[in-house]
Simulated assay, not measured.
Amino acid sequence: MVSGIRAATLLARGREEGLRLALLSMEGTARSFWAGAICLMPFLIIRAMGNDALLSAGLGVELIGYVLGWVAFPLVSLTLAEAWGRGPLWPLFIAAWNWANLATYTVLLGSTVLGSILPPGMGGMLTLMAFAYALWLEWFVAQRALRISGFRAGLFVLMDTAIGLLIASTVARIGG
């Protein structure tokens, strides 16, 4: 887990050497899903600050959506990675993607907390910047881990975003 956190720190700064720490063995990909457990508390705080879904009967639905978000994209991305002949690099990509999510959740939590005390316009701009950073980080990880073009890495980001939006809208419909 320490290697994964170090990998996240390097990747968050755009340093490709974080990939070497993300996957030290084939079990490294499976262990990288511990990042989801680490990110659960920031997720809950962000959700609680955003609406009252966690204060009502929606907590269970939110948690199911959270788990789906950590599982659906890796499963779907395997198909795309294999179609592009990058299947052997997929375990590295998923390990790096999982650990990079630590940086993403840290930035999103910071922007959410800071945005709550800033004037609305500044808070909104900070949130937008945090999301832009999250998209860039995923693009960077996909491009470097899978050794693909920036365009193809962008398609992975779009796919993950679409899956996330689908899960979020489903959670909102069921839990709302």
Rank of each mutant, 00 (worst) to 15 (best):
A100C: 04
T79F: 14
Y105A: 04
P74S: 06
R86P: 01
R86F: 01
P88C: 00
L78R: 13
T79G: 10
A81Y: 02
W90T: 03
N98M: 08
F93Q: 07
R86Y: 00
F73M: 08
W84Y: 12
E82Y: 15
L75I: 10
A100E: 04
A95I: 10
A103I: 13
L102Q: 06
S77K: 06
L102D: 04
L75D: 02
P91R: 08
N98C: 10
N101Y: 14
V76A: 14
I94L: 15
A81N: 03
G85Q: 03
G85Y: 06
W99P: 01
G87N: 02
G87I: 04
F73G: 01
T104K: 13
A103K: 12
W99Y: 12
L92G: 08
L80R: 04
R86M: 02
T106C: 12
V76C: 10
F73E: 03
T79N: 10
R86W: 00
S77C: 09
A100L: 00
L78T: 09
A96P: 09
P74A: 07
I94S: 11
W99D: 00
W90G: 03
W99M: 01
W84T: 04
T104W: 02
F93H: 11
P74E: 09
G85L: 04
V76Y: 03
P88G: 01
P91S: 09
L92S: 06
A103W: 11
L78Y: 13
L92I: 08
L75K: 01
W90N: 06
S77F: 05
L89I: 08
L80D: 03
A96K: 03
I94V: 15
Y105N: 05
L102A: 03
L89K: 15
P88I: 01
A103L: 12
A81S: 14
L102T: 06
N101G: 14
F73C: 06
T104L: 13
W90Y: 11
I94D: 09
N98W: 11
L89Y: 10
I94C: 13
L75T: 06
F93W: 07
R86V: 00
N98A: 07
L78G: 13
F93P: 05
A96Q: 03
F93N: 07
I94T: 13
W97R: 08
I94R: 14
A96E: 06
A81T: 08
E82F: 15
W97V: 03
A96I: 09
G85A: 07
I94Q: 15
A96S: 12
T79Q: 11
A95S: 14
G85F: 06
L92R: 14
A100P: 01
A100V: 02
L89T: 12
P74T: 10
L102G: 02
V76H: 08
N98E: 08
I94P: 12
T104Q: 11
A95N: 06
L102I: 14
L89G: 05
L89D: 13
L92Q: 12
E82C: 13
L80I: 13
W90I: 03
G85P: 05
A103H: 10
T104D: 11
L92E: 08
W99N: 01
L89C: 08
T106G: 13
A83V: 09
N98T: 10
N101V: 04
L75V: 12
Y105G: 02
G85M: 03
A103G: 15
L92M: 12
W99K: 00
